[in-house]
């Protein structure tokens, strides 16, 4: 029972990271209707920035995370301006290939800047010299990383939901995702709104990068790609374009992955995760919380 609980907690923790990454995918998809494959690599950049700020410059981890968020936000805006904005009217496949090109670019730039040797990410989240708290004579362990990850995910979810529901900019984002033309007629600056969406998604990617590397401390230029694909799967799982869907999809995916690893087989855990995705999509073709779009002739 306690092992089950342990697995469940680590599943939720991994799922929280996926959920934060999936938010970036889902927001960008909702508004720009594009699959931003470079998102996974922004995660990696965020983790590297935080790593160097903390281990080379000796800054406090909180400042490191904030700086990583700033760098990733700028990176997201620059990528959007240079590569995606000129392709607003282009066919979606052209945008997809550009995003993939961007992903290659970030990976290879990181490889040149920081070499392909992996770096050990330091353990940030220690309070009072302990890695975490344990219950039942150490049979149930909760590391601080896990607690911080889950809390961060919840806080981000609440703040983001409030942001999109209550603020003017958030409403503009929802309007753009529904109908760009109509939004423009209502005086919404669509380009700025899309840039802001990219900025928010990239800042979240930085947070996700730090949290991911705190739990799995090997940092490489390719660190972001597999979690990126998984989080993208999570976004589709929950219904792409929907913020609560990203949370639900991310957490479910994390739990399924950890349980598949623990109870079935480590080697085929990825296959099981993807198989579950396929089954869900066959039953609900637009994901768990996705909107059913009716086709008109």
């Amino acid at each position: 029972m306690l092992t089950f609980l342990n697995h469940l907690i680590s599943g939720i923790s991994l799922g929280s990271v996926y959920a934060i990454i999936a938010l970036g995918y889902t927001m960008v998809y909702g508004i720009a209707k594009m699959l931003n494959f470079a998102h996974g690599d922004v995660i990696m950049v965020g983790a590297y920035v935080c790593f160097f700020m903390v281990s080379s410059f000796g800054l406090h981890p909180i400042i490191g995370i904030l700086l990583a968020m700033v760098v990733c936000t700028l990176l997201g805006i620059v990528i959007e301006r240079l590569a995606y904005k000129p392709l607003r009217q282009a066919p979606s496949l052209a945008v997809l290939i550009t995003a993939i090109g961007m992903s290659y670019f970030l990976q290879n730039a990181a490889q040149l800047l920081w070499t392909s040797n992996y770096k050990m990410f330091p353990a940030f989240f220690t309070f009072g010299g302990k890695n975490g708290v344990s219950f039942f004579d150490g049979r149930l362990n909760l590391s601080w990383t896990t607690i911080v990850t889950i809390l961060a995910c919840l806080v981000i979810m609440v703040v983001l939901t409030l942001f999109t529901d209550k603020t003017k900019l958030g409403k503009a984002m929802r309007a753009c995702s529904e109908d760009k033309g109509a939004a423009q007629l209502m005086g919404i600056n669509v380009n700025t709104t899309i840039s802001v969406t990219f900025a928010i998604g990239s800042a979240l990617a930085a947070v996700a990068g730090v949290l991911l590397c705190s739990a799995y401390p090997t940092l490489m230029p390719t660190t972001g790609s597999m979690p990126g694909i998984k989080a993208f799967t999570a976004a589709v799982f929950g219904g792409i374009g929907s913020i609560p869907g990203a949370l639900l999809g991310g957490i479910l995916l994390g739990i399924i992955e950890i349980f598949a690893k623990a109870y079935i087989s480590t080697q085929v855990s990825d296959a099981i995760v993807f198989a579950v995705l396929i089954i869900v999509l066959l039953v609900k073709p637009t994901g768990l919380l996705g909107k059913q779009i009716r086709e008109k002739v």
Binding site: T233, Q267, V268, A271, I278
Partner: peptide, 28 residues
């Protein structure tokens, strides 16, 4: 059979998933 019932980006993601499944099956 399953994939072609879906549309657009959902179809794309399911083909991606199948690609990964095939890879991990052959690996074992």
């Amino acid at each position: 059979i399953p994939v072609l019932r879906l549309r657009g980006d959902y179809l794309a993601i399911v083909t991606l998933a199948f690609g990964e499944i095939i890879k991990s099956l052959i690996t074992n």
